[in-house]
Computed example of a mutant assay.
Amino acid sequence: MSDLDPFKIFLDLQLALPRNGPGSAVATEIAFSMLPPLPESPEIADLGCGQGASAFELLRLTAKKKMRARVTAVDLFEPFLDKLNARAEKEGVSEAQLVVTRGDMEALSFKDGSFDLIWAEGSIYLLGFERGLETWRRFLKPGGSIAVSECTWLTATPSQAAQDFWEAAYPSMGTISSNAHAAARAGYELLGTHVLPPEDWWAEYYTPMRQRIAEMRAEYGEAAEEVLANEEAEIALFESNPGQYSYVFYVMRRKD
């Protein structure tokens, strides 16, 4: 029996990746382009920010439009935030531009109406799509916007293997249509969607993950095998069931 914490193994794996879930700078920019106009100095929250890939991209995109944005990046896990802070220092990003906060997305302490935009790539599943939208709505200013990426069924007839996996991993996973209805119930107008293409799963997530899994097998041996095998099974499922599911960006505006 190993006394290694499975979560420590998982965290070690995630910290070695460029992203902590499917996505890309291109996908972030496409979703950003669907937003209604933001104020000159927008307040933005990046919830479940991980190591900050989307936070830095949001700073770039707003600067490109001559905005003076402030991004509040929130995550529960300090090792992610440590890497985010190190990158901010290396790139000369000031605290006036980026506020790094350790926090639980289910129990945020922000004042109501704090943000013009809430961003969440691959993290709303921790609350569930509709519950997350309902929970975070009060933190938006009236008419504020929210963009989230969410794992979504793209077919009504997935394989049995895909059904079984996601029924265990995320039983409330919806379709684009069911999520659109959930957004309306939660008090939002859906402005647009963007389905992440396969390369957004591979380039900065599954491909480097496979490499890191091989390295960790050499480092940890059998102690890490259960965690690493589970990650490999997820990769194999995506590879063998093309087009059945993906992350989808949902860009929405709060209705008042």
Rank of each mutant, 00 (worst) to 15 (best):
W153V: 07
I146P: 00
L190R: 04
A169L: 07
W201S: 00
L4W: 04
P198G: 08
F10H: 02
Y247M: 10
Q51Y: 03
W201F: 12
K8L: 14
R210T: 09
R253T: 15
K8A: 15
Q160M: 15
K111S: 14
A203R: 05
G144A: 14
M34C: 12
P197Q: 06
A168M: 08
E232A: 14
G23E: 01
I176C: 07
L127A: 08
L228D: 01
A45W: 04
L47G: 02
S159W: 09
Q14H: 15
D12M: 05
I9E: 00
E78A: 13
M209Q: 10
K66F: 00
L35I: 12
P36L: 01
H194C: 04
A223R: 13
E219G: 09
G50V: 05
I30D: 12
S114I: 10
E43V: 12
C151K: 13
G243N: 11
H181A: 15
L35V: 05
H194A: 10
S109P: 11
S145W: 00
R68Q: 09
E57R: 08
E204S: 10
G192D: 00
E199I: 14
P79H: 06
T193D: 07
W136E: 00
E43L: 03
L126V: 15
W202H: 07
C151T: 14
F249P: 00
Q244W: 02
S114Y: 01
A180C: 12
M67G: 11
F110I: 13
L228T: 06
M209R: 13
Y125M: 08
S149K: 05
P197T: 07
T72Q: 07
R210Y: 07
R60K: 10
